[in-house]
């Protein structure tokens, strides 16, 4: 593990279990990983292997049953929920498989959401550059329901990066797209991530997506394997 000043994310001996009826299922068992600034890590695994749970723990949206999660140098266990939310808003960008755009807000408003949540002014130059890079300039006034899947994911990527987060968490970013659209989105994702220098943790079962990252780990039975 690197020093905390370089380290953006660290999970140390993290376990997470869920109760289903009378049974308790261990999803993650003693998982440890660390991500330094600028690194790109892909986590691969079958459906139900705990990839999304891992991502939620990393984002502070879920709490481990044991172990320690450190985000942007802060131990999440020591923080109250509102502080974790503020930390996530400031330091994390999220890209979901199902895009999760707010249907009632326009594309521009969706992209600007993180800035508003962080109380940041809109940097027109950066916004124009980002949407230009993603090729969504002409979509800005439209509502999400009128966009294609690929367009939606491009908007979601812009929303995840607009506030220059330290960590980009991507959950199956091409999971809902057809192959051709997925390739285009991955290409863009790669380019934008490189140009912005974002630290990336991506969970996927898509080999193509995983290839964007320098390092790939496999999650099996709640445990990470380097393979």
């Amino acid at each position: 593990m690197g020093t905390s000043s370089e380290r953006v994310l660290a999970l140390d001996d993290v376990s997470r279990r869920f109760r289903t009826g009378s049974e308790t299922v261990g999803v993650l068992e003693g998982l440890t990983l660390s991500l330094e600034r600028g690194q790109r890590l892909a986590i691969m695994g079958a459906s139900g292997s705990g990839k999304t749970t891992l991502l939620h723990l990393a984002a502070g949206m879920d709490r481990p049953d044991s172990g320690r999660v450190e985000l942007a140098g802060q131990d999440l266990a020591s923080l109250p929920e509102p502080d974790i939310t503020h930390l996530r808003a400031r330091h994390v960008g999220l890209v979901f498989q199902d895009f999760n755009l707010i249907d009632s807000l326009s594309v521009r408003e969706n992209i600007e959401l993180p800035l508003w949540l962080n109380g940041l002014a809109i940097d027109r130059d950066r916004l124009d550059a980002l949407v230009g890079l993603l090729g969504i300039e002409r979509l800005m006034a439209r509502l999400p329901e009128s966009l294609s899947g690929g367009e939606k994911q491009r908007v979601a990527i812009a929303r995840a990066l607009i506030h220059q987060p330290d960590l980009l968490l991507a959950d199956e970013p091409t999971g809902s797209l057809d192959q051709s659209t997925a390739e285009t989105v991955l290409e863009l994702f790669d380019r934008v991530a490189r140009e912005t220098g974002a630290t990336l943790l991506m969970v996927t079962h898509n080999n193509e997506a995983a290839r964007l990252c320098e390092r790939t780990l496999h999650l099996r039975h709640g445990v990470l394997h380097a393979d």
Binding site: M61, E81, P82, T85, A89, F96, N100, I102, L113, L117
Partner: peptide, 9 residues
């Protein structure tokens, strides 16, 4: 989604 993006409770 709003909560995930950083809107507090």
């Amino acid at each position: 989604t709003l909560r995930a993006l950083g809107l507090t409770r």
